[in-house]
Amino acid sequence: LPPRWCMLPQEKEFYPRPRPVRESPAAIKLSATASCACVDGGRAFYNPGLPTVTCQCLVYTLTQAFAVQIELQPCPRCPVERHRYIGPDPRDTGLFNYNNSSIFSHELLNEYISAFSSAETPFEPWVNQISRRYEESQQDPFIPFISGGLFRSLWFAYARLVQFEGDKSCPSCGIYPDNIIWDGVSIAFGRKHVNGELEPPTLVGKDAVVHSSRPCPRQEWLPD
């Protein structure tokens, strides 16, 4: 669900909005919506007739993290050597399952939506702020917050799943308002740098070194 503050009055919530996670949740169990994003691009769903395993995961909230038990099921579709598991979808409890070992509260992820949309907050400073908040929680044992790189990856994965209805038009002006004001930043070179050798930064030179592309680990397949 989108954050409550960015929804229009006429928009409907697709499922009951869960309460923010303030305490350590109970064991996260498999349900009918549990699935695995298989390596072949397909998706395998939870089968109650097959065996399951219980592992430990970390649940990150807005103020601290908890070690919680999570129920998983070996994926029957993926190759065994890939060690892929069908994991639960705990959205009804306000949690986002990123990779079966790291779970994040909707409140935490929506907090960053609020931060960057109101004050243009970059990822790293915001992660640093949350890390300091975790340190002040005096949790025993202490579980630190994640790195900026991991948070960036999981936040974009979460943002792709937020169900915006696409009808953010003004209720007063409609779809085609009479006047539109655009605000942005113009990027240009200073006059002293303008000469005959100035070229766009995207232009590839004749003597440019060609590097082979690097593989991207931990890719996640998402359907259109």
Rank of each mutant, 00 (worst) to 15 (best):
A32W: 08
C216A: 12
P18D: 00
P215D: 01
L150C: 10
V204K: 14
E107R: 10
L62N: 03
P76T: 01
G94C: 01
S147W: 00
I181T: 15
Y112S: 00
V80T: 11
Q219N: 14
E13N: 14
Y46G: 04
K192S: 14
D89F: 11
N47E: 11
S24Q: 15
P201V: 05
I86F: 03
P51W: 06
A27V: 00
K12C: 08
E120F: 13
E136R: 09
Y98Q: 08
E71C: 05
I187S: 11
E13R: 10
F96M: 04
R84Y: 10
E111V: 05
R160H: 13
D183W: 11
L108E: 04
S117L: 10
Y98R: 10
C216D: 15
E81R: 09
Q138C: 10
V185S: 09
V209Y: 06
P90F: 03
I103V: 08
V80N: 06
P18T: 01
R214A: 10
P200C: 12
T63Q: 07
L50A: 13
P90S: 03
D40A: 04
A115C: 07
G148N: 09
R77A: 15
S213M: 12
R152W: 10
C55E: 14
C75H: 02
S101I: 08
T121Y: 13
T121W: 12
N97D: 06
I103C: 03
F145W: 04
I70R: 00
T93L: 13
C6R: 13
V21F: 06
C57Y: 01
E120G: 13
I181C: 10
E11K: 07
S114P: 03
R19N: 10
S137A: 12
L72E: 07
V204D: 12
A27N: 04
L95C: 06
L108F: 03
N179R: 12
G41I: 05
V194P: 02
G205Q: 09
A44H: 02
E199T: 07
E199D: 09
P16R: 05
T63H: 10
P122Y: 00
Y60N: 02
Y46F: 14
G174M: 06
S131Y: 01
N195R: 01
C170S: 06
G94I: 05
Q129E: 14
E111N: 12
A67L: 13
D178A: 12
P223Q: 06
W221Y: 09
G41E: 03
C170K: 00
A115W: 04
A119G: 05
R17K: 11
L50Y: 06
P48V: 02
R218N: 15
E135K: 13
L8V: 09
L1K: 09
G42L: 04
Q139M: 00
W182A: 11
P141T: 01
F142M: 11
I181W: 08
G205D: 10
Y46Q: 04
V210A: 14
A119E: 12
G190R: 07
Y46E: 01
Y46W: 07
I181D: 08
P122G: 05
T33G: 03
P177Q: 02
C75S: 02
E81P: 06
W5N: 12
A208R: 14
A27T: 12
L62P: 01
E220G: 12
G49A: 09
V53S: 15
G87E: 01
N97G: 04
W155D: 02
S118G: 02
